[in-house]
Design a protein around this nucleic acid. Structure first.
Lengths: 143, 143
DNA sequence: TTAGTTGCAAATATTTTGCAACCGC
DNA sequence: GCGGTTGCAAAATATTTGCAACTAA
């Protein structure tokens, strides 16, 4: 695995302290909004601007180092595909307790195959977010 | 099927001209953003306020008359569960051409069953949006 | 008459952009 | 030094809210 720093430079981008900090924050946080990332970066270093967070996440996503998902009806969250917890996955989000479960894309592969066969549609299963209710919240649907 | 107007009143809401117009607009448009709904309503009648559109869509969704889905990374779109085209469905969205295909939830039921068995997760398949590439765009992935 | 609704303006919340200063390579 | 990057402030986009006037029931 070529280091992501090399990938950055090979693509004509530059390696900056901000980019290192932001990717590290995403890796550490798991599923983080741009604001979350900003807050995390600020705990360990001097300030970084929120615009820079947005612009950097865009670059990192273009390079395939992070992905975003819509885990709420509001903001997007980013997770890394690098680092120790980094791997492609989709999400199950409980509408009641808000818990997010990350699931390996292979679980959805039969579904992907079905969409391919039946609709000729090549699904991006790594971006999938499934809303519903987790086991615990099915018994007590309201908090 | 009790008329939705009765459902409204039974729930303690009032039937207003705005609510009639807004639901009619959603039924007509298929998948519409609040702005789309506003524009549609305005073609056939006097003005309605955008806040009212937002508030009304919220009420209609609570009553199960419309649903929203995230067909882009940006705004939500609403579709009706009433009217001639109204039925619960999930969406396949092509990242390239933007085309949206509405699919019957039964298609995703095997997937739902799998999530239920494997994770105890009760998925809301009607809210699902699957991003990917449609048949046409797989051959020519870029526009 | 009464309580739910609407319009309007202002407040929030998110994300994007212009641009001069800055800095990686 | 060149050209990509950043910080900052302002703009753009999207959604929500307070409140007085209005109106369905």
């Amino acid at each position: 695995m070529a280091d992501w720093r090399d990938r950055l430079r090979e693509s004509g981008y530059r390696l900056t302290p901000q980019r290192e900090l932001i990717l590290a924050a995403v890796e550490k946080l798991g599923h983080a909004t741009p604001e979350d990332v900003l807050a995390e970066v600020r705990t360990s270093s001097s300030a970084v601007n929120l615009s820079t967070v947005y612009r950097t996440l865009e670059v990192l996503e273009e390079l395939g180092l992070v992905r975003h998902a819509h885990l709420s009806d509001r903001v997007a969250t980013y997770h890394s595909l690098t680092g120790e917890h980094g791997h492609d996955h989709f999400h199950l989000v409980c509408r009641n307790c808000g818990r997010v479960e990350s699931v390996d894309p292979s679980v959805a592969e039969p579904f992907g195959a079905q969409l391919r066969t039946q609709f000729g549609f090549e699904a991006d299963l790594g971006h999938l977010t499934v809303f519903g209710h987790c086991t615990a919240c099915q018994e007590a649907p309201h908090d």
